[in-house]
Amino acid sequence: MLKDITVGQYYPADSPMHRLNPRVKLLASLAFLAAVFIISGVWGYALAVAMTAAVIAASRVPVPYLFRGLRSILFMLLFTVALNVFFTPGDDVVFSLWGLRATASGVAVAARTCVRLTLIIVGSSLLTLTTTSIELTDAIEFSLKPFRPVGVPAHEIAMMMTIALRFIPTLTEELDKIMKAQAARGADFDTGGLIRKAKSFVPVLVPLFVSAFRRADELATAMEARCYRGGVGRTRMRPSRLYRRDYIAIVLAAFAFTAMIAAGRIG
């Protein structure tokens, strides 16, 4: 069950998407997220979906693997859809349920939100699935650099994010191990009411936190042993360079986003 979390994970493969410059990928992803909020109309959405599909194909990440990550937000998705369907004001009632009236405009809004959320999740998963955490830090640091004069600690933020991403699989693995160990001692995680269930996680969370702190401590020591002292004067083993494929990607992305937004205006 814990293996289902694919958000933030890296999927090793050799694909055009994996080879792209991480800075280009990050900025294109941000532009994509912005575009998803601007687009309107059936054609705009159709183009966005088609573009996402093309990127998925280019990334060589298996589709079932990609969508497994969506399962974890299914509840949020359904909740949003229900909220939109039943609480959008309008007179065009389609059907009613327990005194709640579903409006046609509500259904439309719900469909739009649903597609938008899915696109956002898939879009951002694609970034992390095709980019190693080291590459991602570089990209985050790069895009935060303009804000450094106003006191944004670009390097530190990037490093914190990398470490957090790096430890997601480690901690899920550990969580799985501890849950099994407590289950072997007769712990039961899925019966009883909410309070009992919450209580049943104490034997799991205490060891998990203990080990997370221990790991943090060890990591800090290991970083210091390698003379880490923040981003000042740090050089890179692999300096980020733009190749022809990156320029092509920039042009393609700019064209696609413009088309997405324009399609909404026309249709």
Binding site: A181, R185, G186, A187, P203
Partner: peptide, 30 residues
């Protein structure tokens, strides 16, 4: 699970209670 007791690798990583005897009592109280 009661009849076959399984001690995992590095089992000390699953200790969580306030006292030693309370921790060892976790299994029987379950």
């Amino acid at each position: 699970r009661r009849r076959v007791g399984l001690v995992f690798q590095y089992p000390e990583q699953q200790l969580f209670e306030i006292t030693v005897e309370k921790d060892a009592a976790f299994g029987p109280s379950n």
